[in-house]
């Protein structure tokens, strides 16, 4: 249950306005999560500013997906605090309530509703009352239809609107899921590997879209593709073994000796990916990331 300052409960369907007077929309403080002794997150601190676009990078097992799970309520941390704005304590809410206060998530593997049409997929994701009776008797308003059409245009699936989602290609499913995120009008978008399996051109369009979303929304992107990260990132946070290793602009992070050490091992001091502009992992850093064994994936 969400409680306002006076202690009176607000229903999750009310549009909760996070208090961002300090410029921060997402507070993650001292969060630790362990699975059978393995520390997936270790006293992690992360602050996402309102309207920024932040990239999270890190080897597999660094805790990126676990962090997303904690923020979206899938995993309860052992210790720590997660706040949305200043007053909404996300640890008090379940997954659906967190979604309704305005935190949207795109999964690593595209998960869309396969047996439903593209149109229905978007329709279900629209912001609004998610109660049973509204769903049973409610009809789409003209405004909502326009909104769906607009989203379909944005994600380039207008012609496929009435296809079953199962018929879409992998890249189209990725886009549909992004469209579902947009429909929910979230304040914060958590995007897990948005360009995995996309062609170069699709990747470019995704980069454009995510950059255009920042400002109005806060966007947190987890991505392995360094070229992609470089093309969109203003601030990059590097996770390592469940904590923040470095934070700053891409070039700052890349020249950070700690990061180089962790990413490339002792023997290579080279920049982690300048020779790699196609966005596919090659011999250097990225492949190392891909190859590391982990719990994720």
């Amino acid at each position: 249950m969400i409680v306002d300052k006076a202690g009176t409960p607000i229903t999750a369907t009310d549009n909760v306005q996070p208090d961002t007077r300090h410029g921060v929309i997402l507070y993650v403080e001292d969060v630790s999560v362990s699975f059978d002794g393995f520390k997936a997150l270790n006293d992690l601190n992360l602050y996402i500013n309102d309207g920024e676009l932040r990239c999270l990078i890190g080897a597999n097992g660094a805790g990126k997906t676990t962090l997303m799970d904690v923020i979206t309520g899938k995993i309860r941390p052992d210790t720590g605090k997660v706040n949305f704005g200043q007053q909404v304590d996300l640890l008090q809410l379940d997954e659906s309530e967190i979604a309704r206060v305005g935190i949207g998530r795109k999964f690593q593997k595209p998960t869309v509703f396969e047996a439903l049409s593209v149109y229905k997929n978007i329709e279900l994701s629209l912001a609004g009352d998610k109660g049973i009776w509204t769903s049973l008797f409610g009809k789409l308003t003209g405004e909502q239809r326009d909104r769906i059409d607009e989203i379909l245009r944005t994600i380039g699936l207008t012609n496929e609107a009435f296809y079953m989602a199962e018929r879409l290609s992998h890249g189209q499913k990725q886009w549909l899921e992004i469209g579902m995120l947009l429909a929910a009008e979230p304040r914060v978008l958590l995007v897990d590997e948005p360009v995995a399996g996309m062609t170069g051109q699709e990747t470019e369009r995704t980069a454009e879209l995510l950059t255009s979303l920042a400002g109005e929304h806060s966007v947190v992107v987890v991505e392995h593709d360094m070229a992609f990260v470089r093309s969109i990132a203003r601030t990059v946070t590097v996770l390592h073994q469940g904590s923040v290793l470095a934070e700053g602009s891409m070039s700052e992070v890349q020249s950070n000796p700690e990061v180089i050490k962790v990413y490339l091992g002792e023997d290579s001091g080279e920049d982690s990916g300048d020779d790699n502009s196609e966005g596919y992992p090659s011999e250097s850093g990225e492949e190392y990331i891909e190859a590391s064994s982990s719990k994720e994936g």
């Binding site: 659906s96 979604a99 999964f107 998960t111 509703f113 998610k130 049973i132 769903s135 929910a184």
Partner: peptide
């Protein structure tokens, strides 16, 4: 109805339905 779509969505991807806010 939309409820029917949600129910079918639940059948196929229950956790996704949760993350959409239902």
């Amino acid at each position: 109805s939309k409820l029917g779509a949600i129910i079918t969505a639940t059948r196929d991807a229950e956790s996704r339905v949760r993350f959409v806010g239902y």
